[in-house]
Simulated scan of single mutants.
Amino acid sequence: MTESEFIAIIASFAVANMQQSNIAASLSIAPAALESGWGSSGSAGYTSLRQL
């Protein structure tokens, strides 16, 4: 998965989280990208996003 594909998939979740938590979507996407290797390691990024 490319970086752009990862962002396209996770962006809607990050925006929804931003609307509830007032934390910028980019601050949710960045750790998810790093922790999951841009989506290459399964659910690590999703788990990171859910923890916010």
Rank of each mutant, 00 (worst) to 15 (best):
Ser40Gln: 15
Ser12Lys: 09
Leu34Lys: 08
Phe6Ile: 09
Asn17Tyr: 02
Asn22Phe: 07
Gly37Cys: 07
Ser28Cys: 09
Ala16Ile: 09
Thr2Arg: 06
Glu35Tyr: 04
Phe6Pro: 09
Ser4Phe: 04
Ile9Ser: 04
Glu3Ala: 10
Ser40Val: 08
Ala14Lys: 00
Ala24Asp: 15
Gly42Ala: 13
Glu35Trp: 00
Ile9Glu: 13
Gly37Phe: 06
Gln19Trp: 01
Ile29Asn: 03
Glu35Arg: 03
Ile7Asn: 03
Phe13Ile: 13
Arg50Phe: 14
Ser48Phe: 00
Glu3Ile: 13
Gln19Thr: 02
Ser43Gln: 11
Ser21Ala: 08
Ala16Leu: 07
Ser12Met: 03
Gln51Tyr: 06
Asn17Trp: 01
Glu3Pro: 13
Ile29Trp: 04
Gly37Tyr: 05
Ala30Leu: 15
Ile9Asn: 10
Ala11Pro: 03
Ser26His: 05
Ser36Thr: 06
Ile23His: 05
Leu52Glu: 04
Leu34Arg: 05
Glu3Ser: 09
Ser41Leu: 14
Ala30Asn: 08
Arg50Val: 13
Ala32Thr: 10
Ile29Met: 10
Ser48His: 04
Leu52Ile: 13
Phe6Arg: 02
Glu3Val: 14
Met1Cys: 10
Ser4Arg: 08
Ser48Ile: 09
Glu5Cys: 05
Ala8Glu: 15
Gly42Ser: 10
Glu35Asp: 12
Ala11Gln: 13
Ser21Ile: 05
Gly45Pro: 08
Ile9Arg: 09
Gln20Gly: 11
Thr2Gly: 13
Gln20Phe: 06
Val15Met: 01
Glu5Val: 07
Gly45Met: 00
Ser26Ile: 11
Ile29Arg: 02
Val15Ser: 07
Ile10Lys: 03
Ala25Glu: 09
Ala33Thr: 12
Tyr46Ala: 14
Ser4Glu: 15
Glu35Ala: 09
Gln19Asp: 09
Ser36Met: 03
Ser41Lys: 12
Asn17Ile: 15
Ser28Arg: 03
Met18Phe: 06
Gly45Tyr: 05
Leu27Asp: 14
Val15Leu: 10
Leu49Asp: 02
Asn22Arg: 13
Trp38Ile: 13
Leu27His: 14
Ala24Ile: 00
Gly45His: 01
Asn22Ser: 14
Arg50Ala: 15
